[in-house]
Design a protein around this nucleic acid. Sequence first.
DNA 1: AACCAAGTGGAATGACCTATCCACTTGTGT
DNA 2: ACACAAGTGGATAGGTCATTCCACTTGGTT
Lengths: 224, 224
Amino acid sequence: MEPSSESGVCKRVRRLRSDAEQNRDRIIEAARQVYRREGLNASMAGIARAAGVGIATLFRRFPTRMDLIAAVFEDAMRQCRDGAVAARDAESAWEGFRGYVETLCALQASNRGFAEVLTMNYGSAKGMERQRQEAYEAFTDLIRRAKREGRLREDFSPDDLPILLMANAGVLNATGDAAPEASRRLVGHLLRAFSESGSEPLPPAPTPKALIRGMARQRRAGGA
Amino acid sequence: MEPSSESGVCKRVRRLRSDAEQNRDRIIEAARQVYRREGLNASMAGIARAAGVGIATLFRRFPTRMDLIAAVFEDAMRQCRDGAVAARDAESAWEGFRGYVETLCALQASNRGFAEVLTMNYGSAKGMERQRQEAYEAFTDLIRRAKREGRLREDFSPDDLPILLMANAGVLNATGDAAPEASRRLVGHLLRAFSESGSEPLPPAPTPKALIRGMARQRRAGGA
DNA sequence: AACCAAGTGGAATGACCTATCCACTTGTGT
DNA sequence: ACACAAGTGGATAGGTCATTCCACTTGGTT
């Protein structure tokens, strides 16, 4: 049909055939797990294998790697947005702030792919970027409140959040799952730095053993 | 001469032929530059190409990637050791501390490979690890002094330094060279968190533009 | 000046990756 | 029940890598 008359206006018109829909879901689910473990540089071939579909099927559905990433992480990003909104409306602005930051960082710790998503910008992927933008706006309101409350330092900038997320991603990347305290420790330090009183409690430092185990583990990266 | 009687005791006996020595130097120099730009995951083939030698020559001289990395970064690591010793003996322990941390982080910013080296542990590479160990010990003395001085918080741990380095590597990795202020800003926050008074000055936040440019740049990683 | 161990470069191997193509299968509207 | 567009998987082309092998060259010693 219409071998091509819809003049580009609406793209989401064509419904998928039921079996195709099912494959699409399987791909997304497989990708979600692979990305969680291996980060965003996981190979397309590996994801197709994990999903039990042919490579062609994967590429037909998601022509670029970014299409897949966007599909996989869109609702995680939405949750971030919701979290930011909830924090903005929390009773105590500072508690909202602290809780939000800790939640984001814990999310990063539990999902390598998401940790990377949070430190990148996907110009395309409109859906995801819109969530991010909305989260950013709620967060900006939140920090204004927290400053007025007198608990957040005046010189804190909304752009310090992405910096913190990048820093946390770096720690997670370097320690793997060998030293989960390292990430919490970093966040503790930073929350101290952000708070007006500077009296935030600090999680314990990782044991040197664990830290060294983490540092030794560095293999593939992506890292960098 | 002695076509092979040394029964494995001393390995560094056999002197290289003069042309081989020269090739070795060229390889190390080329690797230094490639690692600086591309990080430790740079391809062996690329390094051989840059050095103008055959691939076999590279592999004969440095059988594993780590042998090469150790040869390239040994004296950078020694400089770190020297810096730590100098800081330990500085007039003001806190100034020594601050200066040392800032120097290390600036070094990371100027050399992608070294940024990664500082967040890894190379069980083998005895030379490098010894430097690291000595730096660690000097640093431990330094923080003891700084605490006694009353400028460094009591709950600072020597293991917070590797955490800071990992965090900084994460920021550098995510921003590339698009937002150098981001790294300085992170370090500023952390120094504040470490200082007893919490009144350390804070470098300016990066402009959102620059930060986004950095975030968009993510391509190869290594990184992550 | 002649010998040869030490050293060399490039070809070959094999693994893995992205991306495209195409002959076959299958869901679905009639 | 049938037709056929939509969907499929595997083969394939073309890239990058690490690593090994081997026929040739060369520095240094005698």
